[in-house]
Design a protein around this nucleic acid. Structure first.
Lengths: 146, 146
DNA sequence: GCTACTTTATTGATATATCAATTATATTTG
DNA sequence: CAAATATAATTGATATATCAATAAAGTAGC
């Protein structure tokens, strides 16, 4: 009668634990350097810079978030004046989202910190291990996506 | 002037993507089988069953959640009558948390679904790959934990 | 036994996740 | 063209994450 599996043996428990510790660590680094945005807000800014023509729904797909979350994160970034939101020229349902200069600058000065965070998190892990790790991640993703 | 790294190349992007697709898949399976709790609520019930003597703070550490989140999840589970909360016999700051019979039963009937979810998510991934994967997860965790 | 400190839990505020419902606009189709 | 359908975004409700402040009870040192 032992269905009392141990948490530590559960792969997805380790997965949650690792991603959470990374997120906390990375967010703390941002705070320590006095950046006034969250990791998620950073990701959204980056996505808009990479491809300013996306609809919010496309952005949501790209950064793997809900439409509603994107709406709210955009809202916050418009308030913080990192995003300029204007009417889309041809489709009145949409908005044109553009990074403000302040956001371009912010992304630039954040970049070294972001890279250093990743480096710290992956310390002692070989290229080879990382490649295999990423393969497994992709397999899991493909097994679970709807 | 190319600091426009591609999202798909970022390991932690893949990590987020995989864990989110797994969580969504697993939660959908619970809904499909008409279970009325979330994955997180399940995890908390399981932890209490494994070790009923834990304080809420210890539970939080175990399942890698914030104290405040544990308070609120416990609240919901008490409302749903899956947890019986009573005064701790010797320490009046604490509560004694006990699974209701209904929760024991729920955990039992959920177990096969949970296991099948994991199996689906890990389909086509060898034991060997999983072990190495878990090693990398632990390295990341240790690199990031404070 | 009093004071300072620590521990346990709750609460409030804000950010994000998810689902469902709604609004406005565009597109398709008969 | 009008009606049906699809798309883009928002909003509301509930769950969870995080930080800070608070309250209550326990413990240690004097």
């Amino acid at each position: 009668m032992n269905n009392q599996e141990k948490l530590e043996d559960i792969l997805f428990y380790s997965l949650e634990r690792s991603i959470k510790s990374y997120r906390q660590f990375a967010q703390q680094q941002l705070i320590k350097h006095h950046f006034d945005i969250t990791i998620d807000q950073w990701l959204l800014l980056k996505t808009i810079r990479d491809n300013p023509e996306q609809t919010q729904q496309q952005i949501a797909q790209t950064i793997f978030k809900d439409f509603a979350s994107v709406t709210r994160i955009v809202e916050l970034l418009v308030e913080k004046k990192y995003i300029i939101r204007s009417q889309h020229p041809t489709d009145r349902r949409r908005f044109k989202l553009k990074l403000a200069d302040s956001a371009e600058k912010l992304l630039s000065i954040m970049q070294p910190i972001i890279e250093s965070n990743r480096k710290t998190a992956l310390k002692g892990i070989s290229e080879q291990q990382i490649l295999q790790f990423q393969q497994v991640l992709n397999l899991i993703y493909n097994n679970c996506k709807s």
